[in-house]
Nucleic acid binder design. Structure first.
Length: 289
DNA sequence: CCACAGGACGGCT
DNA sequence: AGCCGTCCTGTG
């Protein structure tokens, strides 16, 4: 197999650090030279920014250019989005300057569902460790440049795991949730292919909420970060609650702030781009904390 | 040893 | 409908 290369020149709104460390993905790691390597579907991809060029490398991808355009959401005009959102207020404008190179990835729906069920009541390093273990045991091995990588497990493969098998990966109380959701998707009680066809975000959200381990926050993350790609959602975790309280609500106790109040505020201020606004605010608050 | 971090869920009012 | 204890593991 031959290594493939694809280079983007003079691209705006593309900063690997912003993209891979804004909390949307768990399978990308930084290398010593500052490039990032990650697993996308059945492929290992390396991304490096040099001056104003983005260099993508991979092994055995049929069409690396198409994969990159799709996965990195390159057909969307983030400059335009940032212009619109920056006019909302100074707070958002500043956070957009901070995370100016964020792009929302088009990640596989199944992988996003399982990954964000794991994310519940969990931190990013531990989520990554668990997903790596899971992939090593139930995914396929890829060797590249003398290193081993493992693809995210397919539905069929993961359905072979018992609850005990899952628990041994370090999932804790999430084991049953992953088990039940895997079966539900395998049996097509929830048909993932049909979710893409449904236009009404609220309807898709309700279906996602029927999956074990998927609550309001996880559902919104799946809607935003997967190929479902809905921007009219506003995932509220502790950091988003914190930043919205600090900027607008100013309650003495941020844990007492009502979710409905935050949702209403986000809808009013950011409209149908609220999901993007959430990412800029989250990345800024989290990274400067 | 304990405190803490991080969402879903079920039982309670 | 909203509130709250519990679920598990890793870190300081």
């Amino acid at each position: 197999m031959q290594e493939q290369k694809y280079i983007l020149e003079n691209v705006n709104s593309f900063e690997p650090k912003h993209i891979f460390e804004c909390g949307q993905c768990f399978r990308w790691d930084e290398n010593e030279n500052g490039s990032y390597t990650g697993i996308v579907g059945n492929n290992v991809i390396n991304v490096e920014k040099v001056d104003n060029k983005i260099i993508f490398k991979s092994l055995g991808v049929d069409n690396l250019e198409n994969l990159v355009i799709d996965y990195f959401d390159l057909n969307r005009n983030y400059e335009e989005i940032k212009r619109k959102l920056s006019s909302v207020d100074e707070y958002l404008a500043n956070s957009i300057k901070y995370g100016s190179g964020i792009r929302i990835l088009n990640q596989d729906l199944w992988e996003t569902i399982i990954s964000f069920i794991i994310s519940a009541n969990n931190n990013i390093p531990r989520i990554k460790t668990i997903i790596n273990r899971m992939s090593k045991k139930y995914g396929n091995k890829i060797e590249w440049n003398g290193k081993e990588y493992y693809t995210f497990p397919g539905i069929e493969n993961l359905s072979k795991a018992t609850v005990e098998d899952l628990r041994s990966l370090g999932l804790g109380f999430r084991d049953v949730r992953i088990y039940e959701t895997t079966r539900k998707i395998l049996n097509k009680d929830v048909d993932l292919s049909k979710l893409h066809e449904e236009k009404d975000t609220e309807k898709v959200r309700e279906i996602l909420l029927s999956l074990s381990g998927v609550g309001p926050k996880v559902a919104d993350c799946i809607l935003l970060f997967s190929t479902l790609k809905r921007f009219d959602v506003f995932p509220i975790d502790v950091w988003v609650r914190r930043v919205m309280n600090d900027l607008y609500i100013k309650n003495e106790d941020e844990t007492k702030v009502n979710k409905k109040e935050i949702e209403k505020l986000a809808k009013e201020k950011y409209g149908d781009l609220e999901g993007l606004a959430q990412q800029y605010l989250f990345y800024w608050k989290r990274d400067t904390a």
